[in-house]
């Protein structure tokens, strides 16, 4: 008997996880970040509950510093698939002047992402939240469970995680505690792109190369959205480039690339020798950065 191709094995595992959460929790929600992983996760949810609709809302934590193209894509995509979309912003912090230029990226992230996320989960009364994080993205994520337990303050304790065996997930929580669920845990960046190609899944056009107006700053290409300030001597220039991962415009650099189609992106990945989150400023704030953020409640 033939064995199942690897993308179908991953798909089967993810669908099992999505259904398991839906069956065992009262109010699941799916964190939707507009990126490629979210696109894949939404498609898996469509498949898991077909021919029914996706039985939970999508939640986007909008820092207001996302790229305009992401927001347009988000709104069209949600409408097209008929999903319920909740957009949450930490308006209080923004009213008090929170922005990456004034606070620095670390504090900005804590207020506009982590705090906003915890508030949104609490306000919605959600007891389980799907996230598109993958274990291959970053070192501290390699040890993340598929069901990641968070205490009443939304915090993660890497030393006190539940053992996870077979496909048997422990869904028991007390009131106020939550579970973050990562259905794409075992997918790699390559798997995600291959699946997007195989399934013809729509993604934000910023992933595809074209000439973009950017500032060349060291090894990164910085976008000029949201009134980013030029440093002395800097000049915007047109560079053939694309985004490899999407976040806030201030913190996400583009990469030089000619890959303007899915097959070219996949070819490019094969030759890549640099990791996907390298252009994400927030991962490099300090040693063990992502782990610290996760302990505080970041995804």
């Amino acid at each position: 008997m033939a064995s199942l191709p690897h993308l179908q094995s991953l798909e089967a595992e993810s669908i099992h996880i999505l259904r398991e959460v839906m069956a065992e929790f009262e109010r699941p929600v799916m964190l939707y970040s507009v990126g490629k992983d979210s696109s894949v996760m939404v498609r898996l949810a469509q498949k898991a509950f077909y021919p029914g609709p996706i039985p939970f809302p999508l939640l986007h934590v909008d820092t207001t510093y996302k790229f305009q193209e992401m927001i347009e894509f988000r709104d069209n995509f949600a409408k097209q698939i008929g999903a319920r979309l909740i957009v949450h912003t930490n308006t209080e912090a923004i009213a008090n002047g929170a922005n990456p230029y004034r606070l620095g990226t670390e504090k900005c992230c804590a207020l506009l992402k982590t705090q906003a996320l915890l508030d949104a989960l609490r306000e919605g009364g959600f007891d389980a939240a799907f996230g598109g994080a993958r274990r291959d993205e970053e070192k501290s994520r390699a040890k993340e469970r598929i069901y990641s337990f968070r205490d009443r303050f939304g915090q993660w304790d890497p030393k006190n995680q539940r053992p996870e065996l077979w496909n048997l997930y422990n869904s028991r929580i007390n009131k106020g505690e939550t579970i973050r669920v990562f259905p794409l845990s075992n997918w790699t960046e390559m798997d995600v792109w291959q699946y997007i190609q195989e399934e013809n899944i729509p993604v934000v056009p910023m992933y595809f190369a074209k000439e973009r107006s950017v500032v060349v700053r060291g090894n990164s290409l910085v976008s000029l959205e949201h009134n980013a300030t030029l440093r002395p001597g800097e000049q915007p220039e047109l560079v053939m480039s694309r985004m490899r991962s999407l976040g806030c415009s201030h913190c996400t650099g583009a990469i030089r690339s000619e890959a303007d189609t899915l097959p070219k992106i996949i070819d490019e990945l094969i030759t890549f020798r640099r990791s996907e989150r390298e252009n994400r400023v927030i991962d490099h704030d300090r040693e063990g950065s992502m782990e610290l953020k996760k302990r505080e409640g970041y995804f």
Partner: peptide
């Protein structure tokens, strides 16, 4: 493959970590 702060401090691996790689023939977890 040495992930968490605690284990960097102790110099030992303390939890199950998952790694991924692929060859043209197979994907491995």
């Amino acid at each position: 493959t040495d992930g968490l702060r605690a284990e960097r401090e102790q110099g030992i691996t303390i939890d199950v970590a998952y790694r991924y790689f692929a060859t043209p023939r197979r994907k491995f977890i």
